[in-house]
Every structure is written in C-alpha cells, then in structure tokens.
Amino acid sequence: PDSPLSRWTKSLHSLLGDQDGAHLFRIFLEREKCVDTLDFWFACNGFRQMDRQETKTLRVAKAIYKRYIENNSIVAKQLKPATKTYIRDSVKKQQIDSAMFDQAQTEIQTTMEENAYQMFLTSEVYLDYV
C-alpha cells in the first residue's frame, strides 16, 4: 500500500521526493519540452539549502536568474510579473536571501500540480512504468 507508486499519486511533493519518481517525471517533462520548470524547482530548493556565509550565493542567485527568469523561458512565462521584478531587483541590489526564490517556486509548483503532474499520471511514461 505504501509502495513508491502509491506515494507518487499522493502529491507532487511525494513524487519529487522519490528518486525514481523524480527521474521519470523528468523524462516526461523532457518530452513535453518543459523540463526547465522542474530544474528550476530543484534549483530553488538547492539555493535555499546553501550556506549563507558562502560568497558564491550571489553568483548562484544571478545564474539562476539569468538562466530561468531573465530570458523569456517557460519558467519566466509562468511567473507573475511582480515576482520576476522582485527577483531581478534582489539580484541587482545584491540583496541575497535564502527565501528570495520562494514565491517563484510556489508559482511554478502550483502550475506543475495543476498541469504537468496531472498529465504525468495518465502519461505513457508513467503507465509503462506501472
């Protein structure tokens, strides 16, 4: 009853917390050409876990901003303008905070939950695995 498969259907969070689940969801998103949303989601988690004392946090924040938000990528398209502005200003003013991507991550997560995750649970990738 508590197999990985039954956990995957519980929530997006439980899917992404499982190695095989996250891997399979990634394959699905690659086919759907929106794997950037998942990479961004994980990047936000990784950023939050970084040591504040490290000087490289500014570099990483800038790099995440450039790669996913500054250009008009699929991530940028799913974010509210105010959220993008907030991150842009934080990077510009070098006001780096471990929670600076939290709002953006929540918005991307909500979109994934409502769309890609539901599609994944009825996708060939998932059903073949099952």
Partner: peptide, 20 residues
C-alpha cells in the same frame, strides 16, 4: 572558476532526492 551553468547544475543536483 566554474561556469554559471555549472553552478546552477550543482544547485539542482544538491536538491535531487538521493538513493533510498
């Protein structure tokens, strides 16, 4: 010094679920 892409990739990898 690694590239920006490398630092983002490391950030992603650090947050990925590990082997059970």
């Amino acid at each position: 010094l690694d590239s920006e892409d490398d630092s983002v990739q490391r950030c992603i990898t650090s947050a990925m679920p590990k082997h059970r």
